[in-house]
């Protein structure tokens, strides 16, 4: 199965990004494909490379980057939502790319299932 995932909340504030990550990992472990993760609303904050959590906490941003590298997951940050919130190319973490909302629509049309994680 081909999965698309939507993340609508920022890291640490809400559990949404954690839940989405664990879902993606479980899907991949079962042999499915996570084709794209689309970050929308405050979810765009998951892509900030300036994120620096305490040492003993999980690093949510790096976790997404690693998932993208190891499993070719396309991490897309909505451009309109990102610009509103100060996420730009210069502070974008590795593995993420900024693009338009059409990428979300495409995830809906191309994937067998689209799962949303938000508040």
């Amino acid at each position: 199965m081909k999965f698309g995932i939507v993340v609508n909340e920022g890291p640490y504030q809400h559990q949404a990004s954690d839940s989405a990550y664990l879902f993606a990992k479980a899907a991949i472990a079962k042999g499915h494909e996570v084709w794209r993760v689309f970050f929308y609303h405050d979810g765009v904050n998951n892509a900030s490379k300036l994120t620096a959590p305490p040492q003993d906490d999980r690093h949510i941003v790096n976790r997404w980057t690693k998932l993208a590298e190891e499993h070719k997951v396309d991490l897309v940050v909505c451009v309109a939502a990102a610009l509103r919130r100060g996420i730009q190319e210069e502070n974008l973490a590795a593995g993420f790319r900024i693009s338009g909302l059409g990428q979300l629509v495409e995830a809906g049309t191309q994937c067998d299932r689209l799962i949303t994680f938000g508040d």
């Binding site: 309109a80 629509v105 495409e106």
Partner: peptide, 19 residues
């Protein structure tokens, strides 16, 4: 909250993609 506004943006794009 901003959800209503940003939802509307997705709706317009989705329509533009002839869905």
């Amino acid at each position: 909250t901003i959800y209503a506004l940003e939802s509307l943006e997705v709706v317009l794009i989705t329509a533009a993609f002839d869905q």
